[in-house]
Design a protein around this nucleic acid. Structure first.
Length: 755
DNA sequence: GGGGGCTATGGGGGG
DNA sequence: CATAGCCCCC
């Protein structure tokens, strides 16, 4: 045993080793990017097990399920078997597992449904309608997010209604009834036996707080060692649960939190840096370790990250450093359009692959919004570069999949109103909107679920056939769930529902692809059944039920999708890239209004969060970092012109390949002068220099076909034509590679020249 | 009750 | 641009 211990402790630096071996009491690890945080967490758990702690007494909360799996595999390599029985996973997935066993103690069925964001929105929409509120004023998304925030702050509907701050804010926003919607929402979720994502935390908290049948003591004594990764992205509710769990007299406050305030990027879902700042005062004798040595990136990248984050005011003092050499300078690519951005990134990837022999999997393209993925897809496909997009519309969010899933949901939990509403008339069986509205009214009057309504009222006339037929269908399906395994039951459900027949009738490519997707779903269930992973719930070690399958897919994170080890280029949002690393990283769309997002521009706090997001993005890179931005892009269905992102300009010239990026020393809003970029490509080397001083934009009406015009960035050109939407085609003399530009006159500043 | 076509509206990050 | 919601007609 001594030998084993030696081998892994030797792989750590001094501070890492202290963080691993200080196993008792509260520990806070501040871990900069690439500082070996995962290694510390892994070895800490291995060390605990090595010291005689049972794996199932350890609770490790990770940010993705994939991270948890990888961690367990690595622990197993260090200490041998047993590691799989560590309780490791995301807050949501682990608490869902516990609630599957305990939910009945707090008034939910153990087979509760999990409402995703769409389900929540659809329910909230229904409530807004039933309260005769204006859906334009009561924006569903905004209301949902208010409710979610309230839950994350442990604010019940009653407490919400009594809170003057919240109520006056709602009144100011002309939405004084949110508290009422919240109240009904909670009621209806409960009635449907459903929990939304926040409930998985909130009900776990309630379970521990109310302590029915001593259940709190059970979990307090079980989880004797807690580890929390990415602590900066936890919200108050998560923190309160942790506080409840760490209380146990035989192992007081054995909690180790790992985080980095500079990488806090989830405040929009209630995460608060206060948790980190609070930790030291909430627990006594907190031992703090700061991991500041970066093992991931080159010196240029590390220093650029330090420079960028220094623009933020609020932060814990630390300096990330590396022993690595300077490495390659950070490459900056400026393009005219978003499409050209896609092409240049693909070109650069080809070049890097040739020169540095990178495999595809060593390369990632990171963007601020998922909608940006399309241009990169197009160009990568053109070059036959394999890629994979993470996030965005996932497999399980496709319509045909959600339809089949809804049938499964209703079989598992018939009270699931959102699932029922989705499929009661799909495929069409003559139960229209009017009928469903009537049923909903009866459900509301009697405070029961829709399923209870249709199975309890006397069906008359046509309803006897239509609704009665639906009930029979669901009942037969339900029977199969009891008698057959998950795969066979799901196969039966998919066929019996009529969805497969319906899609088979549609012989279009789309229809065929939908069938393929359903087949893939069934294959996935088959795989789930056959997969012999050791379950960690001792009460149901090998739960292969459809209920358990539904749970695992609704709690998947973006990084969890598709485990296939194919060699592909990664495309994902910066948020999704948290915790990952690549040899070469492209951070694209670095423009004002996009990154930072236009939503963030109004408050300094949210700009700081965007900057942390940028910090996360650039610190994903090991060797090569490429930053790109476009002069114009299609956004919201029209051509838009954005300034380069302030974040690009915060990186000192010495670290980039274009010392030419002229800084806007005089602040923002000044007209920019072209010629900022020297070595782009030979053809663009001599970009026109137009002096901003002499430039005077002409009125839109003065610009006519045939006239010569001056553009601040493109220089002198001739208007070829103007279409009815006031989009001008202009040929610019000095734009050699693509002289003809289409420019929207309402945005562009052009000066008419007298010939 | 169902379906098609039109208009209006919104448009971030995610468990 | 994509989708939701609406109106109209069968």
């Amino acid at each position: 045993m001594q030998q084993v211990e030696q081998s892994y402790l030797q792989e750590l630096n001094d501070i890492q080793r202290q963080a691993v071996t200080t196993t008792e009491g509260p520990v806070m690890v501040i871990a900069g990017p690439g500082s070996g945080k995962t290694r510390v967490l892994t070895y800490r758990i291995a060390h605990l097990i090595n010291s005689g702690i049972a794996p199932w007494n350890i609770l490790a909360l990770t940010f993705t399920n994939k991270a948890a799996r990888e961690m367990k595999d690595r622990i197993e390599k260090v200490i041998g078997t047993g590691a799989q029985r560590v309780w490791a996973g995301t807050f949501h997935s682990l608490f869902a597992r516990i609630l599957r066993v305990e939910a009945h103690r707090i008034g939910y069925p153990n087979d509760f449904s999990i409402y995703d964001t769409d389900d929540s929105k659809s329910l909230i929409k229904e409530i807004i309608k039933s309260l005769s509120l204006d859906p334009k004023v009561y924006n569903v998304g905004a209301v949902r997010s208010r409710i979610s925030t309230a839950k994350s702050n442990l604010m019940t509907p009653k407490a919400y209604a009594n809170n003057d701050d919240l109520m006056s804010l709602d009144k100011m926003n002309r939405r004084p009834m949110i508290y009422k919607i919240y109240e009904q929402y909670v009621k209806k979720c409960k009635r449907a036996g459903a929990m939304d994502f926040d409930d998985l935390l909130l009900q776990m908290f309630n379970l521990l707080l109310k302590n029915p049948d001593g259940v709190r003591d059970k979990y307090q004594s079980q989880f004797r060692y807690l580890l929390v990764d990415e602590f900066q992205d936890t919200n108050s509710l998560q923190y309160e649960i942790l506080k409840l769990l760490t209380v146990y007299e035989e192992s007081p406050n054995n909690i180790c939190i790992v985080g980095d305030d500079a990488q806090s990027i989830y405040s929009f879902r209630g995460a608060t840096i206060e948790n980190i700042l609070q930790f030291e005062s909430d627990f006594t004798n907190v031992q703090v370790f700061k991991l500041e040595q970066n093992y991931r990136s080159t010196n240029f990248i590390v220093n650029a990250a330090n420079e960028v984050i220094s623009y933020n005011k609020r932060q814990i003092q630390k300096k990330i450093w590396t022993q690595s050499s300077d490495g390659k300078k950070i490459k900056i690519i400026k393009t005219m359009t978003d499409s050209e951005e896609g092409r240049r990134v693909a070109d650069t990837i080809i070049e890097q692959k040739n020169r540095y022999h990178y495999a595809n999997k060593h390369i990632a393209i990171l963007y601020r919004t998922n909608a940006q993925s399309r241009v990169f897809e197009e160009h990568l496909r053109r070059y036959n570069l394999p890629y994979r997009i993470y996030g965005g519309l996932s497999f399980y969010q496709r319509k045909e999949i959600k339809d089949v899933i809804a049938y499964i949901r209703i079989c598992v939990n018939p009270k699931d109103d959102e699932a029922l509403k989705r499929i009661i008339n799909y495929p069409k069986r003559g139960i229209g909107k009017t009928t469903v509205d009537k049923l909903t009214a009866i459900a509301n009057d009697n405070e029961i679920s829709l399923w209870q309504v249709i199975t309890q009222i006397e069906l008359k006339g046509a309803h006897k056939r239509t609704i009665g037929g639906f009930i029979e269908t669901v009942k037969t399906m339900h029977q199969r769930i009891i008698t057959e395994n998950a795969y066979k039951a799901a196969l039966y459900i998919a066929q019996k529902s009529g969805i497969i027949d319906l899609l088979k009738a549609d012989n279009s490519p789309e229809g065929r692809s939908r069938i393929e997707n359903i087949t893939a779903l069934l294959d996935g269930i088959q795989e789930f059944v056959e997969d012999d992973e050791i379950g960690i719930d001792e009460e149901a070690p090998e739960d292969k039920s459809l209920a358990r399958f539904l749970q695992s897919i609704s709690l998947m994170t973006d990084q969890d999708e598709d485990q296939s080890q194919v060699d592909t280029i990664t495309l994902m949002s910066v948020h999704a890239a948290k915790g990952l690393e690549y040899k070469s990283v492209f951070v694209v769309g670095l423009e004002e209004n996009l990154f930072p997002s236009y939503m963030s521009l109004s408050s300094p706090e949210s700009i700081e969060e965007e900057r942390r997001l940028f910090y996360v993005a650039i610190t994903r890179a090991e060797e090569m970092l490429t930053l790109t931005f476009a002069n114009s892009r299609y956004q919201f269905g029209q051509m838009r012109f954005n300034d380069p992102s302030r974040f690009v300009e915060e990186i000192p010239d010495a670290m980039t390949d274009s010392a030419v990026l002229q800084k806007k020393k005089s602040g923002f809003g000044e007209p920019k002068i072209l010629g900022n970029f020297k070595k782009l490509s030979p053809s663009k080397a001599a970009l026109p220099k137009v002096s901003a001083k002499d430039f005077k934009a002409s009125h839109i009406d003065e610009i006519e076909a045939g006239k010569s015009v001056l553009h601040l960035k493109f220089g002198k050109g001739k208007v070829i034509s103007i279409d009815e939407r006031k989009v001008a085609t202009i040929r610019f003399e000095q734009m050699y590679d693509s002289p003809e530009k289409r420019i929207m006159l309402q945005y562009a500043k052009l000066q008419v020249l007298e010939d």
